[in-house]
Amino acid sequence: MRIRCPICGDRDLREFTYKGDAVALNRPGPEAAAQAWDDYLHLRRNPAGATRELWYHGGGCGAWIVVTRDTVTHEILGAVLAEEAEA
């Protein structure tokens, strides 16, 4: 698998690590209800198809990237920096 890092370009999978669904960007506030936190941390749509997910280019520039990828075909549909991604 190869991922296009917005900073470094097309790079091999082994330079990246994974954090799962990009929902991790939408951290609830400390006062949010238990259900909101359960949703944030545990419950997942887990689609068989296109999904937005977080990757870390730790073997490269250190950028966190939001990658849109198909979980059935592994086709990569896009990648943007997490700090520029819409939550």
Binding site: T17, A24, R27, A82, E84
Partner: peptide, 17 residues
């Protein structure tokens, strides 16, 4: 060390850009 670095990068870039 590695895990913490990745975590801090995530918080900085992903949660509090």
């Amino acid at each position: 060390a590695g895990q913490v670095m990745a975590h801090l990068d995530f918080v900085a870039q992903g949660l509090r850009p």
